[in-house]
Design a protein around this nucleic acid. Sequence first.
DNA 1: GGAGGTCAGGCAAGCGCTTTCCTGGCAGCG
DNA 2: CGCTGCCAGGAAAGCGCTTGCCTGACCTCC
Lengths: 358, 358
Amino acid sequence: MATLSDVARRAGVSPATASRVINGSSKPVTEELRERVLRAVAELQYVPNAHAQLLARSHRTAVGVIVHDVSDPYFAEITRGLQRVAADQGRLLMICNSYRDPDRELEYVELLRGQQVAAIILAGSGYHDATFTRLLNEKLTAYEATGGRVAVIGRHEHSGDAVMPDNRAGGRLIGAELYELGHRAIGVVAGPAVLTTTTDRLTGLRESLAAHGLSLPEHRVRHAEFDRDGGVAATAALLDAEPELTAIVALNDSMAIGALTLLRSRSVAVPGQVSVVGFDDMPIARDVTPALTTVRLPLVEMGARAMSLALDAGAPAPRVEVLPAEVVRRDSTGPAPEVVPVRPRGAGPGADRPVRRS
Amino acid sequence: MATLSDVARRAGVSPATASRVINGSSKPVTEELRERVLRAVAELQYVPNAHAQLLARSHRTAVGVIVHDVSDPYFAEITRGLQRVAADQGRLLMICNSYRDPDRELEYVELLRGQQVAAIILAGSGYHDATFTRLLNEKLTAYEATGGRVAVIGRHEHSGDAVMPDNRAGGRLIGAELYELGHRAIGVVAGPAVLTTTTDRLTGLRESLAAHGLSLPEHRVRHAEFDRDGGVAATAALLDAEPELTAIVALNDSMAIGALTLLRSRSVAVPGQVSVVGFDDMPIARDVTPALTTVRLPLVEMGARAMSLALDAGAPAPRVEVLPAEVVRRDSTGPAPEVVPVRPRGAGPGADRPVRRS
DNA sequence: GGAGGTCAGGCAAGCGCTTTCCTGGCAGCG
DNA sequence: CGCTGCCAGGAAAGCGCTTGCCTGACCTCC
């Protein structure tokens, strides 16, 4: 591996001069020497050792990002926003997948600290886990104490700069939407209960239902993984236990797609017999059949804002930006199949549907 | 930021000893000193500077990966395979998205070289572009000359270790499948013509069609971006120009999904009037309606193999592993709507379909 | 009791680069 | 002609860490 001194030697100059030419230093260098250096660089295919450079200049420039999984469209969108702003400022991004494992998240904070990143951005749901939260906050605080910047997306556990999708409002929107369509027996296909995203969305839904005198009993909420297969499993369980439901709320689009698939396999008409609502408005939502009614979050925007916060050291610390959610009406929702009296549930219709009970 | 010397000072030992404790060196250290060091580490929240470590030990351990886009399911799967093997060997992965931009690919090779990665893995289609190919090969060769290892996935331009999906065989499988179903008027919704993936798949398809005396004229092949919107656009153009088609081959699943969406918007029954085939077998393929018939590639396996090749320096250089493609039959294909005589095309049926001509 | 052996721990030389500060040469000025 | 000032280029001091080698203390054995 060619080094700076190799280049310098070949060009017949000192390493200092070579360095100045290569980095376009403000210090002037004669045209002749400059050319000699450049030629040597080309001939040797010289590439500066990035680690040595980082050591020598104390300037930290890279930014670390911890997400659950970049290949998940939700995070892919957020990452796009992060990238955009980072690129504008000439920052390199180091992206780490925690796969929703708190321990791995902790490890990555250390790793990024070791990589001397200028800022760490945590994206994705927080956890209902006091021990983990304390540990994470300790690490983050230690990092900030050494001049590092931290911004989070959609998690409440860290008391610093944050951008928050309005999950609760989104939940409320869904509740209102379904209520207006006449749905009174509503089931929820939810993500893991330890995720704040799950509970926030659920809380919003409950709030708007409660505003109309409806309640959402625990047995109509099924928790599973936040993915397609989780959606299939939770929907199956829900349908078996609660055949009278006229609407199913999936707490993200992946689960909603699983729900749609299961419903189709059981020949339940959507939205004829059961309406389905998702959350997030992933790109695929409009391509499934029926096209999915869902709640859109400004994901790219969230990423962009978070990066701006992280990079703009100026302002006093705890800036929190809440970004609004919005209903996207498509074809998976419709009026409740028949008017069900508000109270007497249990003896409802639906038992005659082709639903296999376990 | 606390440094090793800070820790050493606090523990009352030399930096050398502190280093040995922290890295679990083989050199023995008294229990007492060890504890003092560990305590100091904890108190100072010390995290070693990764760049300094990399400089000091000449051991390179990270591996660089250049893909088109990790959030694309195709690459997400490959990356999963890469990760698995890398993790097994304690390697860190640096993943870079080229977004199918050759220049960016070149830049990333430099960057990874600068990061002192032990190996570089290039995944994704190659380009039909002689200049770029030469440039890339130069850089790669220079990198290999300094002891770096290179492995590619699905690109022919580099003459070293490679794992290749059998795109051509996949194309052939599709041709055979459709022929057997009675399709004679087949259109193709293809990705960018500069990508070798596109041309390989197309070549395979042409081969198997030719084996039955059929040809695939240029006007029945429409190129567009390798994504959902590209699929929509190309399918629309194809349908407008060639209403007699009974089958549409999309050269990847994203495009196939676009095709399905467009077909639905025009009320063309799939597979009743037109059959649709995809390529790749992305997870979503089974959840669209109708579930997509497609060609499966062992993506995870491909990633795993490539990483193994890259990490196993032992063998003599050009090892090429070709991995087989396989048809996955689902609901988007069916018999051609009526038996069309092999030769006389043009006067075929289909004009009575509700297809809007531009 | 002294020579030789053993072993924990420290010294210091780098790893490849940047950057401050210094040097030597030259032009400009009185 | 000599002094000052300016400027291109080089010497060298780190950046934070690892590690080969050396030291000095302590044991062991004759």
